[in-house]
Design a protein around this nucleic acid. Structure first.
Lengths: 340, 340
DNA sequence: CTGAAAGCGCTTACAG
DNA sequence: CTGAAAGCGCTTACAG
């Protein structure tokens, strides 16, 4: 594999000049430039990433991450992915600042400003759906500042850098597809969602509904909201099941799975086919005991890792991600593979 | 993050000595060694992988890969993973030799010898189940030569380096779990396998049977073999379905999915719930048109990549993989997520 | 048992 | 517009 030095030798110029040409730094005579490019192309030059990585230490780069502060173990997984990569990148001289802030727009905005004042070179954020935050992030992007939205995105985001996470609409479709398979296409579905105004929850429900459009005997009977809270979840699920004795299938869109599970179990002689999302410990237990037939997972640790990796690649290679939406796999888990 | 240089400075010794201690090269005075280790521990030294990677070029390493030569597109995917990583590692000065050989023991043995005579430093192989091959690989491992078995393993392999691929027994369990969900636990299953003596196929069937043990109304009626061949598959599947009109579920264990699909479709008014493996183009089509309800995939490209990555990490960091069995995810795909 | 030097491929900062 | 030098962290080969 050819190196810059080798190209320099062949072209009869210095390594500096080759570096200038290959990295488009300008200020090189056209004839020289063409000659270098020709040789690079001919010999199929590709940079040695180890060399590139070794020098980024000199840039003293810092990435700021804003995560949502919550007891929800799902967020802990995202954080775990971030921390693991942060540790790895630390050996390359990169600094990663992680801030967990409450789920309010004011707190997120304050933290964005705080990190910017600490001279971060890129931002990773789980943005709340909120006009001022959206504007702030778009303004940063317009300046060419790299912003990675992670796990959840701002509305109608034509990201200038990238979004890392699930395709929630497709997740909803997949959940409906599983529901089709386990019910044979005949069911009265109760939907238990987290927040009616959370985009990810909304998109999953839309995906679900879009899929079942083609199956006239699959119907959504009612939709309730549990604020991702187990106590609330137990109450609203139980109430819905009492109110609609015809409900024989449950679509758990977000958190509060433990509470919903308890509500389901309280109806001893009723077969309620249930599909959920994610694989937090309580959810796993409910899959193991058969209360939940399948759960659709989104690899939160991987999302955290990818968010940082994508920025690291950008700093090292100077290239934005090829796609501005990076989707993690939709993983369907049933009892047999829930512990894999 | 502290470097070897910094430690050398603090310990009042040379960088060479620090390198000797940290990499256990021996020949260092005990007191000096302890002092260096103490400082390294105190400052939480971790090597900068970019530095390590930059120097492996000097070792002029070569990895040999023996893949199975076949029209089967699945093997092409494995190869694709290998090729992608080979290209990446080429920029670090690593050479990867890929050899595709026919599915016979004699050919594989000849190729192992051939690669060894070319002074490879590690071997990746999809081993055929065969006594002499097993012995040969075990002998290499006994010498400390790194061998990665990929996608399929030798029997009862306590790998000294590692196996990269699926957990086939668990795959079979997962297939049975899906079958349980789509049939409600009542079905007469016909099994179409590839080769009765292929370990991966055998293990999947065992996993399937182990899972349905707990469901008295799920029964395996008959098992036929299609040699992973579509023509044969069409014939044996059709014959089995004719012979056993009670069969209402099909477990496609390996290749020949296209042939089996055609056989299924020839029984117009019979509802045969079908589960398969992998997502080759023909299988995808059958999932899209509803003939196959779910297919269980094993990420062949990832397997190819992992096989080389694990060796690369070993060369760079000098550490064997932490686990001698690296399992790729069991991915359940249904119509909604088959194209993700 | 220890150290000085050279080099892996790359980028930066400076000199001209 | 171009080049020489220094340095990122690591390992190797040699000298003592």
């Amino acid at each position: 594999m050819v190196t810059q030095s080798k190209i320099a030798e062949l072209a009869g110029v210095s390594r500096s000049t080759v570096e200038r040409v290959l990295n488009n730094r300008g200020g090189v005579n056209d004839a020289t430039k063409d000659k270098v490019l020709e040789i690079a192309k001919l010999l199929d030059y590709h940079p040695n990433r180890a060399g590139q990585t070794l020098v980024i230490r000199q840039k003293k780069l810092t990435i700021g991450c804003i995560l949502i502060e919550s007891d929800n173990l799902f967020y802990a997984e995202l954080n775990k992915g971030i921390e693991e990569k942060a540790f790895e990148f630390q050996t390359y001289g990169l600094t990663v600042l992680v801030r967990k802030v409450p789920f309010t727009a004011a707190d997120q905005i304050r933290e964005i400003d705080s990190l910017l004042s600490e001279n971060i070179n890129a931002l990773v954020i789980q943005p709340i759906v909120n006009e001022p935050i959206t504007e702030k992030l778009k303004a940063l992007e317009a300046q060419g500042f790299p912003v990675v939205t992670m796990n959840t995105d701002i509305p109608d985001h034509n990201s200038q850098f990238c979004y890392v996470g699930n395709d929630f609409h497709l997740c909803g479709m997949t959940a409906a597809n599983i529901m089709l398979l386990v019910t044979g296409g005949k069911c009265n579905v109760g939907v238990v969602t987290g927040f009616s105004n959370a985009k990810s929850h909304y998109d999953r429900i839309e995906g679900f509904k879009d899929f079942i459009k083609n199956y006239p005997d699959m119907k959504v009977i009612d939709t309730v909201e549990n604020q991702d809270d187990d106590l609330e979840s137990y109450y609203v699920t139980k109430t819905m099941l009492e109110k609609h004795p015809e409900i024989d299938a449950l679509f758990l869109v977000a958190g509060g799975v433990h509470g919903a599970g308890k509500a389901i179990k309280s109806f001893k002689n009723r077969n309620i086919r249930t599909i959920s999302f994610d694989d937090m410990p309580e959810t796993k237990n409910l899959v193991r005991d058969g209360t939940i037939l399948a759960t659709i997972c989104q690899q939160p640790i991987r999302q955290g890792k990818m968010a940082l990796s994508v920025l690291f690649d950008y700093f090292v290679e100077g290239k934005k991600p090829e796609n501005n939406r990076i989707y993690t796999d939709i993983q369907i888990k049933v009892r047999a593979n829930i512990d894999q």
